[in-house]
């Protein structure tokens, strides 16, 4: 059987496709081995991961003013959620 050549480019493309999926599957073994020995691909892998992490950690919170305005636009009242009608 012909062994698939894992060039860096293939590795990087594969990483993009499969991020967050199972890197322990047999088809990923070659990739894993390559990653361990290739600093370039490892950096690429790390920076793709960091990209996702950056956007995951970048969150904003709705302030009280925005919250009150929303309820008022909808004709709702904060107390509605606590009352027993």
């Amino acid at each position: 059987m012909k062994k698939i050549e894992t060039t860096c480019k293939l590795v990087m493309n594969h990483l993009c496709d499969n991020l967050g999926e199972d890197l322990d599957s047999p088809k990923c073994l070659d990739i894993k081995t390559h990653l361990e020995s290739c600093p370039n691909c490892r950096s690429f892998f790390n920076t793709i991961n960091s990209t996702v992490e950056f956007y995951k950690k970048y969150n904003v919170k709705l302030d009280d003013k925005g919250h009150k305005e929303l309820l008022s636009i909808l004709g709702l009242n904060e107390d509605d959620s606590n009352d027993d009608e």
Partner: peptide
């Protein structure tokens, strides 16, 4: 039932706002 509607808004306003910002 306004109480129910308010509860829906309270459950999702933060997620909706954060996603809209993103």
């Amino acid at each position: 039932n306004k109480k129910a509607l308010t509860e829906i808004v309270l459950r999702y306003e933060q997620t909706v706002y954060n996603f809209a910002f993103k």
